[in-house]
């Protein structure tokens, strides 16, 4: 059985795309979230092996969500999804405890490489 993944992004388009990339590589997307608050709730419920986290989301952004999740589970494996030009935010997320990041526009191979690195 593949690793269980939670995908967090406020855009359906992005969630769909990420899920497709992961599913086709044998990962198991067990849930989705479209706000930071939802992400925290889903993480508690699902305890996934990996989270992909958008930075800009309504109702608590991705960075605050990372902080909350890591507070709850210091071993949480979170992969940030960022746009070009969000360098400072990505750095903040890393400092908050995110393990790695990928930059939009996504290339499937880059996303999968990052996922593998995070899962070690």
């Amino acid at each position: 059985m593949g690793h269980r993944v939670l995908v967090c992004d406020d855009a359906i388009f992005m969630r769909t795309m990420i899920s497709d990339i992961l599913t086709s590589a044998g990962y198991d997307v067990v849930g989705e979230a479209e706000t930071g608050v939802q992400a925290i709730e889903r993480y508690r419920d699902l305890r996934p092996d990996l989270v992909t986290m958008d930075i800009v989301m309504p109702d608590m952004g991705g960075i605050d969500a990372v902080r909350e999740i890591v507070k709850d589970d210091p071993n949480a494996k979170i992969l940030m999804c960022s746009a070009m030009g969000q360098q400072a935010l990505v750095v903040e997320a890393i400092q908050a405890g995110a393990k790695d990041f990928v930059v939009k526009p996504f290339q499937p191979s880059r996303v999968l490489e990052a996922v593998q690195r995070v899962l070690g």
């Binding site: 960022s82 070009m84 969000q86 360098q87 990505v90 750095v91 890393i94 400092q95 790695d100 990041f101």
Partner: peptide, 13 residues
């Protein structure tokens, strides 16, 4: 590499 700064900080961590 994209966002080299963030990548470098990740490496330092």
């Amino acid at each position: 590499a994209a966002l080299k700064g963030a990548r470098a900080i990740l490496a330092i961590r």
